[in-house]
Amino acid sequence: MFYWFLKFLAIGPLLKLIFRPWAEGTENVPSEGAVILASNHLSYSDWLFMPLVIPRRVTFVAKAEYFESPGIKGWLQKKFFSGSGQVPIDRTSGSAAAGAIKTQLRLLSEGEVCGIYPEGTRSHDGRLYRGRTGVARLALEAGVPVIPVAVINTDVVAPPGKVFGKFARPGVRFGEPLDFKRYDGLQDDRYILRAITDEIMYEIMRLSGQEYVDLYAQDSKKRDRDAEREAAKVAAQAEADEVWEEIKPD
């Protein structure tokens, strides 16, 4: 019940008062029963604003380290993440990805609402990137619908790399539920998983209005970092050449 204290008595009303978040399509989120909310990911604040506009608890999986730190600070951190709807990944599965799916399957079997970011990481440039197929596998194994979700303006409020950007009204759009029961039993078919994921990402793109890039966000970040490093090397060499031209003997 700490979550509801946090949401309604502490952070929730304050965020609503200051930012006045708006929402569309909230009627698409069922009042009960398991469902997956698959959202774009623009900012660390997404997991605060998206659950704020619907009455149901939305649970996300998080690194187990957030719940295992020692001391008073660790206890407060654990209470905060637990209270804000996050649960630790089950690491007995051998990998973080498998552990996340195992944890989410358990939550869905209990009728919970699970939030997931198919891109796997925040967008560094505001574009929408290729989704990873874990969301498709989760939907098929749990046998639950997927609701595409688009957060708007959260990257203005809290841009990547910054605690706060500038004031803006964040928004959340909930699409109509996507039912993938026609693919029952095909959760090990990678082509089916890709087709389902692409369908989900298309709906998120349609809701968000983002430019879509058929590339994983992590790969795009690496490519941009490599390009920046190469540009810095070229600039440094050009500067060195210019200095040499000034000081070299005639």
Rank of each mutant, 00 (worst) to 15 (best):
S95E: 00
S95R: 03
A96R: 09
A96Q: 11
A96D: 13
A97H: 07
A97F: 06
A98H: 12
G99I: 01
A100C: 04
A100Y: 10
A100M: 08
I101T: 10
I101S: 06
I101F: 02
K102N: 13
L107N: 01
L107C: 00
V113K: 03
C114T: 15
C114Q: 07
I116P: 00
Y117Q: 03
G120D: 11
R122A: 03
S123Y: 05
S123I: 12
H124G: 11
H124Q: 14
D125G: 06
D125Y: 07
D125V: 07
G126E: 10
G126R: 10
L128A: 08
Y129W: 13
Y129L: 10
R130K: 15
G131P: 01
G131S: 02
R132W: 00
G134D: 02
G134K: 04
G134T: 04
G134C: 02
V135C: 00
A136L: 08
R137L: 02
R137I: 04
L138R: 04
A139G: 00
L140M: 00
E141C: 02
A142S: 12
G143Y: 11
G143D: 08
V144P: 05
V144N: 01
V146T: 00
V146R: 01
I147F: 13
P148I: 05
V149A: 09
A150D: 07
V151C: 08
V151L: 14
N153K: 15
T154V: 13
V156R: 15
V156L: 14
V157G: 12
V157H: 11
A158I: 10
P159K: 11
G161V: 07
K162F: 10
G165S: 14
K166Y: 14
P170S: 15
V172Q: 11
V172I: 11
F174R: 04
G175V: 06
E176W: 07
E176S: 10
P177G: 07
P177S: 08
L178R: 02
D179T: 08
D179V: 12
D179S: 09
F180A: 02
Y183E: 02
D184S: 09
L186Q: 15
L186C: 07
L186P: 06
Q187G: 09
D188Y: 09
D188K: 12
D189H: 05
Y191Q: 14
I192C: 00
I192D: 06
R194K: 15
A195D: 12
A195S: 09
I196N: 05
T197E: 04
E199M: 10
E199L: 11
I200S: 03
I200M: 08
